[in-house]
Amino acid sequence: MRALPVRRIATTVLCTSLLLGTAGPVMAAGSDSPHGSSQEAARAPVPNADALLAQVKTLGDAGGVLTPVTDLLTTVLKADKGQLPAADATKLAAPVKNAITKAAAVAPKAPALPQTPAAPGLPDTAALPQTPALPQAPALPKALPDGTRVAADPKADALKALQASVDALVKAATGGDVAKVASAVPPVLTGLVNLVAATLVGGGLPKPDLAGLPALPKSPTGSAALPQAPALS
């Protein structure tokens, strides 16, 4: 008579084990689903991330130039009569050149597309009668009316001018003439300001929205509008 309860207990344990074994994976899958979704959401890219990263890089390149140049200026201005040992001047000038070279680097050009085959020649057509020659239009002026030049790449021009002014400062700081140092510092400061201005104007950055700040000028397109030629008679 004792065997019957033992069989019932064994059957109950077996059924319970089967139910738990079946429900376990289902419950685990259900609990993992929200966690997996949150991980996928965390890895989702920021909208317009590439464009924003390009703006961040533009500012980073400009900032990477500012720091070594200001370090050079600070060291020269604090030195006795603005003079530095040649080794120290070279050591300070090297990061400036590297930063300017990095900021001036351009993206590699895309490979040229394969040329399309030449179209088969068309049959010759009968010659048309010549039209009378029109009078030549007067030559357009090569320069702007006020003699100013429009920069095709303001940032590149600013970097080039900054490097030249830094070279002049290093030469003055190792040449023994304090007067030359005093005259070489302002062009470097102006070069930094020009670089910042060129970066803000032509770097594709968002427009400033500080109250009371005047609007920045638009970046030149590389060529100014030429005056229209007079109508032919």
Rank of each mutant, 00 (worst) to 15 (best):
residue 191 G to E: 01
residue 128 L to M: 14
residue 29 A to D: 13
residue 95 P to E: 07
residue 3 A to E: 06
residue 116 T to Y: 01
residue 60 G to H: 11
residue 61 D to P: 03
residue 123 P to L: 01
residue 61 D to E: 13
residue 111 P to K: 00
residue 55 Q to R: 15
residue 205 L to V: 02
residue 140 L to I: 06
residue 136 Q to N: 12
residue 80 D to M: 03
residue 48 N to C: 01
residue 142 K to V: 05
residue 6 V to L: 12
residue 198 A to H: 11
residue 169 L to T: 03
residue 80 D to N: 04
residue 36 G to Q: 13
residue 173 A to H: 00
residue 44 A to R: 14
residue 28 A to M: 15
residue 186 P to W: 01
residue 47 P to R: 02
residue 20 L to Y: 09
residue 178 V to I: 12
residue 20 L to V: 15
residue 87 A to Q: 12
residue 173 A to K: 07
residue 74 T to E: 15
residue 109 K to R: 06
residue 42 A to S: 10
residue 72 L to C: 06
residue 179 A to G: 09
residue 133 A to S: 08
residue 73 L to D: 15
residue 128 L to W: 04
residue 214 P to I: 01
residue 3 A to I: 03
residue 138 P to M: 01
residue 20 L to A: 15
residue 188 V to F: 05
residue 181 V to N: 03
residue 76 V to T: 10
residue 226 L to T: 14
residue 147 G to L: 11
residue 219 S to H: 00
residue 120 P to N: 03
residue 104 A to W: 03
residue 142 K to P: 13
residue 56 V to H: 08
residue 12 T to P: 02
residue 206 P to V: 07
residue 89 A to K: 02
residue 67 T to F: 04
residue 167 D to A: 09
residue 131 T to M: 10
residue 70 T to A: 15
residue 151 A to K: 09
residue 126 A to K: 08
residue 151 A to C: 02
residue 183 S to H: 13
residue 105 A to D: 15
residue 211 A to F: 08
residue 135 P to M: 11
residue 41 A to L: 06
residue 43 R to C: 02
residue 110 A to V: 10
residue 228 Q to G: 15
residue 160 K to N: 15
residue 217 P to H: 14
residue 49 A to S: 13
residue 150 V to R: 15
residue 1 M to L: 08
residue 117 P to D: 13
residue 2 R to W: 01
residue 184 A to C: 12
residue 33 S to F: 07
residue 172 A to F: 03
residue 51 A to V: 13
residue 108 P to R: 00
residue 195 L to D: 08
residue 159 L to I: 07
residue 204 G to H: 08
residue 127 A to L: 08
residue 114 P to L: 01
residue 11 T to D: 12
residue 87 A to T: 06
residue 37 S to P: 00
residue 8 R to T: 00
residue 115 Q to S: 08
residue 71 D to I: 04
residue 51 A to K: 10
residue 185 V to W: 04
residue 164 A to L: 12
residue 137 A to P: 13
residue 21 G to C: 10
residue 145 P to V: 08
residue 183 S to W: 12
residue 49 A to L: 15
residue 216 L to W: 02
residue 230 P to R: 02
residue 120 P to G: 03
residue 47 P to I: 01
residue 61 D to H: 09
residue 71 D to E: 07
residue 120 P to L: 09
residue 37 S to I: 06
residue 231 A to K: 06
residue 53 L to C: 00
residue 127 A to K: 11
residue 30 G to V: 04
residue 187 P to D: 04
residue 80 D to W: 03
residue 47 P to D: 07
residue 65 V to C: 15
residue 199 T to Y: 05
residue 39 Q to H: 01
residue 157 D to H: 05
residue 189 L to R: 15
residue 98 N to P: 00
residue 42 A to N: 11
residue 26 V to P: 09
residue 226 L to H: 10
residue 65 V to W: 06
residue 186 P to D: 05
residue 112 A to E: 08
residue 112 A to S: 07
